[in-house]
Amino acid sequence: MSDGLNDARAIRIAEIMTDFRNLQYYLSQLHATPTAEEYYLEGYSLLRQCTLEAQAILDAPFSAGTTSPGGDPEREKAQLKGIIVDAGVRRFQCQRAYLRAHAGLRWMNSRNSILRGQKPNASHLQALQATDSTLRMELLSITDAHVENTLRSQDASQGKWLSEDPTLSQIQQTLMRR
């Protein structure tokens, strides 16, 4: 028997998809223009990778099943739950790419601040190495648990219904199967 939460599930899907769309928009706006010498530097490679990840998430087929509920509340419930999981996993992936891209942008801005339009030289070496090290440390801190926590904290602070959002282990299992 249906539990009467299908409207709440549909609203939750809309919320998750709105977050997903916003993250995708942000990631699509990343445009770094490194010089030929800078092209393969860590931060610029990271920004390209995050953009490619975002596109791959969009290109991935929907994986929550395609059965038609046909007016059956129980089938509708199962379908909505599947969509919540699929959308939640995609949002998680985009959030991870967003956090990583944001670290890359901080690296790029720090680098630009150090160089101030000059070509890198020996006087910049220590500061540039520190910037590279900071980027690596930031990337190490962007764990799956951290990504999931940022999403849950944001949703909880906005009073969203989270009862059927996928857990971190469900997200990780889904990603391993893809």
Rank of each mutant, 00 (worst) to 15 (best):
residue 74 E to M: 07
residue 74 E to A: 09
residue 75 R to F: 09
residue 75 R to V: 10
residue 75 R to E: 07
residue 75 R to G: 03
residue 76 E to F: 09
residue 77 K to I: 09
residue 78 A to G: 08
residue 79 Q to I: 12
residue 80 L to C: 05
residue 83 I to P: 04
residue 83 I to Y: 00
residue 88 G to K: 06
residue 91 R to F: 04
residue 91 R to G: 04
residue 91 R to Q: 06
residue 93 Q to Y: 00
residue 94 C to N: 07
residue 95 Q to C: 03
residue 96 R to H: 10
residue 98 Y to C: 03
residue 99 L to K: 00
residue 100 R to M: 13
residue 100 R to N: 11
residue 100 R to T: 10
residue 101 A to E: 00
residue 103 A to H: 05
residue 103 A to L: 04
residue 104 G to P: 00
residue 104 G to R: 04
residue 105 L to C: 07
residue 106 R to C: 14
residue 106 R to W: 12
residue 108 M to L: 13
residue 108 M to Y: 11
residue 110 S to C: 13
residue 111 R to Y: 02
residue 112 N to K: 15
residue 113 S to I: 06
residue 114 I to K: 02
residue 116 R to Y: 13
residue 118 Q to L: 14
residue 118 Q to R: 15
residue 120 P to M: 00
residue 123 S to E: 10
residue 125 L to D: 07
residue 126 Q to I: 08
residue 126 Q to C: 07
residue 127 A to H: 05
residue 127 A to G: 04
residue 129 Q to C: 10
residue 130 A to V: 01
residue 130 A to W: 02
residue 130 A to H: 02
residue 130 A to Y: 05
residue 131 T to E: 05
residue 131 T to R: 01
residue 134 T to K: 10
residue 134 T to G: 08
residue 135 L to H: 02
residue 136 R to P: 01
residue 138 E to Y: 10
residue 138 E to D: 13
residue 140 L to Y: 08
residue 140 L to P: 02
residue 140 L to C: 10
residue 141 S to K: 06
residue 141 S to V: 05
residue 142 I to S: 05
residue 143 T to K: 01
residue 145 A to W: 07
residue 145 A to D: 13
residue 147 V to K: 00
residue 147 V to Q: 02
residue 148 E to G: 08
residue 149 N to K: 14
residue 149 N to M: 12
residue 150 T to N: 03
residue 151 L to P: 01
residue 152 R to K: 11
residue 152 R to W: 08
residue 152 R to N: 10
residue 154 Q to E: 09
residue 155 D to K: 09
residue 155 D to W: 13
residue 156 A to R: 08
residue 158 Q to A: 08
residue 158 Q to P: 02
residue 159 G to E: 04
residue 160 K to Q: 06
residue 160 K to V: 00
residue 160 K to A: 02
residue 162 L to I: 04
residue 162 L to V: 06
residue 163 S to I: 14
residue 164 E to H: 13
residue 164 E to Q: 14
residue 165 D to C: 11
residue 168 L to C: 07
residue 169 S to C: 10
residue 169 S to E: 13
residue 172 Q to H: 13
residue 173 Q to I: 09
residue 173 Q to K: 15
residue 175 L to M: 14
residue 175 L to E: 14
residue 176 M to V: 12
residue 176 M to S: 14
